[in-house]
Design a protein around this nucleic acid. Structure first.
Lengths: 244, 244
DNA sequence: GCAAAAGTGTTCGGCGTACACCCATGA
DNA sequence: TCATGGGTGTACGCCGAACACTTTTGC
């Protein structure tokens, strides 16, 4: 297969999306049809692609993300590289690789990136393969070794969100404190006390209240906030700590 | 070049070693001699090698470590993958790669591992290239992109040592609290108050005092301690915290 | 008026931080 | 006896944890 890519090097992206309630992952449908049109199997995989000649790994991840979501300038982080010789040796993987013209015997190593978006900023289903959001907790198995990659990505996200301002990448620009709290709860799998959470947030200078409230909600409308990266950069010390 | 390795995939190991005072890194001399015996250049690189066919990345890193230090069963952790298309394009890199029969135009991606050892457990200079320890703070530049790899490794070590029991990997089995403290100081680049440090340690169940003291030191001999992984595994909660 | 989420304060215990002097040993 | 690192305790302030009721809006 010659499409100007490096045949044994790929990038897989774990695209996390928050929808005000749950943590979701963007997956592609992997449907293999026989010549007679019957479905041989249908499951899901992460978004990934072989790295192009002359393209850095970061550029490759950004390209994959943009091709799938239409988004650019998105938070992206390399978290681990998967290179077991047998990582593409499951029966379905072989069938699939053959069907798309890749050599199933070739050892491919994959560099894993995760990215963070708000689901409402994404209009999915750009490409030839159908993409859609899946609740993280309901993902059973994935094609290739992608479940393992997903697990490792979640671990990396959990570690990093405790000490870095990643939560804001999952939110729209203007957000409520309840949504911010929910992110820490669903990402870390814990419950947080509302009053303690708000006390902590109020001590943080770069989470700034706006002169605006929620509209059209059938309950008391919440104050909106935004994240100021400028204030964050100016005031951050070694001790950012969002571990609960 | 055919030595049963994958030509565009390598593993580089950042081997950190503690010597009771400083943090050191094991480097190989990279000396290129012209046909007339004159030295074209001489500098240093990390320890690395191309990945073998059929070998996992972890196995590759363990092999490299053992070939260089004679040690096996050592702490090893993958921390980042370096794949810029131009990472081997510095003039010396090209000359060197040619001299060892590699194609300097080939894009090679390198998976970075760091490992932690006590310098006294290592007898260096196994292989054809001369290996020796260098004080981390005195390393100016390295061959290829290895300075960048080293910087990233140190960052990963600093992050991870704050919340995981890595310090003990840098120490002999029996150690003094001063040495333990010194590790946090040199790795994190900070100073720690002795009394506060010891107060914290005394609350940690898996750092256990032995019935043994230092011998033959020309000052009050220090109590020796050991790390009990069993107790650590049995008592660890989410909240291991060694960030100062 | 009811459902649904927003918003708000106090108490308590533990942990991090700052800080200075005596002790045991080998030379 | 001196030099060298080992070893020890207290006071204070901050932060994390636990905990329940009132408010505002849309329907």
């Amino acid at each position: 297969m010659n499409d100007n890519t490096i045949s044994n090097l790929s990038v897989d992206c774990v695209i996390f999306g928050f929808d005000s309630e749950k943590l979701n992952v963007l997956l592609l449908e992997r449907k293999l049809e026989a010549e007679n049109g019957e479905t041989v199997f249908c499951d899901h995989t992460l978004v990934g692609h072989h790295v192009r000649v002359g393209e850095t790994l970061d550029e490759s991840a950004a390209r994959i993300l943009e091709e799938t979501t239409g988004l650019s300038n998105i938070y992206l982080e390399q978290f681990y590289t998967f290179g077991n010789p047998d990582r593409l040796k499951k029966p379905r993987a072989k069938l699939w690789l053959e069907s798309i013209g890749r050599n199933p015997e070739e050892r491919v190593i994959s560099v894993g990136y995760f990215s963070l978006v708000n689901v409402n900023s994404v209009h999915v289903s750009y490409t030839e393969r159908h993409a859609s959001w899946f609740n993280l907790n309901e993902i059973e198995d994935l094609g290739f070794d992608h479940k393992e990659i997903l697990n490792k990505a979640l671990e990396a996200l959990q570690t990093k969100i405790k000490t870095n301002p990643l939560a804001f990448e999952l939110l729209p620009q203007k957000f409520t404190l309840s949504h911010l709290q929910k992110i820490y709860e669903v990402v870390l799998g814990i419950e947080i006390d509302k009053r303690n959470f708000r006390k902590k947030v109020s001590q943080v200078p770069y989470i700034v209240p706006l002169k605006e409230k929620q509209q059209k909600v059938s309950h008391k409308p919440a104050q909106l906030y935004m994240f100021s990266r400028d204030i964050f950069e100016a005031t951050k010390k070694k001790d950012f700590n969002f571990s609960f």
